[in-house]
Amino acid sequence: MLSRLFSAVRCSVTRHTQESPFIVRVTRKAEAEPQEQYRPGGYHPISIGDVFNERYCVVEQIGWSFYSTVWHVEDFLTQSRAAMKVIASRITKNKAGWDERGCMIALRDQNPQAPGHGHICQLFDTFMVDGPNGRHICLIIEIMGPTVLDIYCCSPRSGFKFLPLFLVKRISQHVLLALQYMHETCNIVHTDIKGNDIFMTGIPSTPVLPEMLEITDHAFKTTTFKLGDFSKASRMSNRRVKLIQPTTLRAPEVLVGAEWDVKADIFNLGCLIYELVCHVPLFNPEWNKEKTGFDAPQTHLAQMIALLGKFPQSLLTKGTATENYFDSEGNLLKGSGEYKMTLHKLLSCTPYSWKELTSMVDFLSKALIIDPVERWSASQLLAHPWLQDVH
Rank of each mutant, 00 (worst) to 15 (best):
E356T: 06
T78A: 05
P372H: 10
Y274L: 11
T17N: 08
H174F: 02
I62L: 11
G309P: 03
N133E: 03
S234K: 06
I244Y: 00
Q79W: 13
K242W: 12
V24K: 04
R375I: 14
L347I: 09
S3K: 11
M182E: 04
G118W: 02
D217P: 08
S12A: 08
N324V: 09
V254I: 14
T358F: 01
P115Q: 07
C271I: 10
D109G: 01
Q18P: 15
A306D: 15
P164T: 04
K29M: 11
P132Y: 01
Q388I: 14
C186E: 13
Y38Q: 04
K221D: 05
G116F: 05
S314H: 08
G134D: 00
P281Q: 07
G145K: 02
W354Q: 15
R250C: 07
G195F: 01
Y274M: 02
T248G: 06
N133W: 01
E211T: 12
L227V: 07
R101M: 14
I91P: 09
G118T: 01
G42Q: 13
G97R: 03
I203N: 06
M144S: 00
A106G: 08
P312L: 10
N324E: 11
S12D: 00
K85D: 00
W376C: 08
W98L: 14
K226F: 07
G195L: 11
A296L: 01
Y38C: 07
L332G: 11
A114Q: 12
V361L: 13
L167W: 03
A82Q: 04
Y181V: 00
E211V: 13
S12E: 09
N94D: 15
A30D: 15
M84I: 09
D261S: 14
L357I: 06
A82M: 04
L381W: 06
I46Q: 05
A321E: 15
I143E: 14
K263T: 05
S7Q: 09
K345G: 08
T147V: 10
M84V: 00
T14Y: 15
K366E: 11
K318M: 12
N111F: 06
E74Y: 10
V70G: 11
T27I: 13
W287E: 13
E323S: 03
V208E: 01
S365Q: 12
N324M: 13
S7E: 14
C11N: 04
T222E: 10
E19M: 12
G102I: 03
V373S: 07
